[in-house]
Design a protein around this nucleic acid. Structure first.
Length: 380
DNA sequence: CTGTCATTAGTCAGACAG
DNA sequence: ATTACTGTCTGACTAATG
């Protein structure tokens, strides 16, 4: 039971952008970013070539979802506003996101991995953890075999880190990107991990890294050197102890192969900020549409919810949420609309609104709600 | 009967991630 | 004119229950 674990983290390289390059191979080698809306869909020209949008053509409030490494070299990264990135790289190609294609390639690469190593934890569309502990094969050969299988199935490259735990593997997979393969043991922690910024730890985001920096802690090594009592006094019992452990490369979390969703949500950002009274009709229409779509999502996935909530982001980017919990679960869009409407009455509506969202929580399985199954279960 | 403590559920904000 | 969308987790606070 105390055997050394071998955990892999596999991360597809620039996933969305790489999938787009499969469809538009003439863009290979160019600065390409994925983001924005479908108005930027490439147009097929009569001469057989395609016309692409450029970042400088972009108007709106979207962000970059993924960029090619050529685009990253120009300083444009995921999460950056497209308007801002257009100033840095006006000539870069802009493509709208095509989630259907990404989901397709996601299934392909995950199936290819599972055929070799079945203990796989889903971490979103483009990454997974794999527990390799029970597979009797030398680590480097096994990891390379997985990389080859992913490429054979998708024509896409990935980067893999293999270490004794999820924390270290997640960091390791990023060390030699793209097309990397990094294998670390605990003895590598001082040389390869302690030298990295604390921000590289999965779970230390912008806020925590800034707070750490304010105490003179920049690297994971400096975090490891900080007294536990100091970390606990500054970040609380749970976070302080956690930081101390992860800084020493300790992480016992298992690879979890099955999970149920906890919530479903739909939200949208408006082209311009709307006002509750001035733009009442428009807001109401979007609100209802979100609720109906959420109801569809619930039924399609076979869930009902006991909690319905809303989210509003104001023009100053400050956000509020309200929710309500019921004694019985619901899944009907119109029902959700009513409950969400009650939540809406509890938020201030003086300031203009940038984003509106609806959420279903407290999910319970409700196979009966799937229309096809209702028929099947009828007794006659 | 009152006060305290533990526990749980609900609500909301915020951090984080892919 | 900078900042999408979907989802998970945690901490703080309140209320209810025993």
């Amino acid at each position: 039971m105390n055997s050394i674990r071998r955990i892999a983290h596999l991360d597809m390289d620039a996933f969305f952008a790489s999938v787009e390059l499969l469809r538009y191979p003439e863009l290979r080698g160019q600065a390409v970013v994925v983001g924005g809306r479908s108005v930027h869909q490439p147009v097929d020209l009569p001469d057989g070539t395609r016309r692409f949008s450029r970042l400088r053509d972009y108007v709106g409030r979207g962000v970059i979802t993924t960029s090619t490494y050529e685009a990253r070299a120009l300083g444009v990264f995921s999460g950056m506003g497209l308007m801002k990135s257009a100033k840095l790289a006006p000539e870069a190609i802009l493509l709208p996101a095509n989630f259907e294609a990404y989901r397709h390639y996601s299934q392909l690469f995950k199936a290819a991995v599972r055929a070799i190593a079945p203990k796989v934890e889903d971490r979103g569309i483009d990454e997974i953890y794999i527990d390799l502990s029970d597979i009797p094969e030398e680590t480097a050969l096994l990891a390379q075999r997985i990389k080859d299988a992913v490429f054979a199935a998708t024509s896409l490259s990935c980067s893999i880190g293999v270490t004794p735990n999820k924390l270290l593997s997640k960091i390791a997979s990023d060390l030699e990107k793209p097309n990397g393969l990094t294998i670390l043991t605990m003895s590598d922690v001082p040389a390869r991990i302690w030298t990295l910024p604390a921000r590289k730890v999965n779970g230390i985001g912008p806020k925590a890294s800034q707070r750490l920096a304010s105490h003179g802690i920049q690297t994971i090594g400096e975090l490891a050197a900080a007294p536990t009592e100091f970390l606990v006094s500054k970040f609380g019992q749970a976070s302080g102890l956690w930081m101390h452990r992860i800084a020493h490369g300790i992480d016992e979390r298992p690879v979890v192969t099955e999970s149920e969703p906890k919530s479903l949500s739909r939200e949208t950002t408006f082209e311009r900020d709307l006002h509750a009274s001035q733009d009442r009709a428009e807001l109401s229409e979007v609100f209802t549409a979100l609720c109906l779509r959420l109801g569809d999502d619930l039924k399609r996935k076979g869930y009902a919810c006991r909690t319905v909530g809303i989210k509003i982001r104001y023009s100053d980017f400050h956000a509020v949420t309200r929710d309500v919990t019921l004694p019985v679960a619901v899944c009907d869009g119109a029902e959700i609309r009513k409950l969400a409407g009650q939540c809406l009455k509890r938020v201030p509506l003086e300031q203009r609104i940038r984003l509106l969202g609806v959420r279903a929580g407290g999910l319970v399985e409700d196979k009966m709600s799937a229309a096809s199954l209702v028929q099947a279960e009828l007794p006659w």
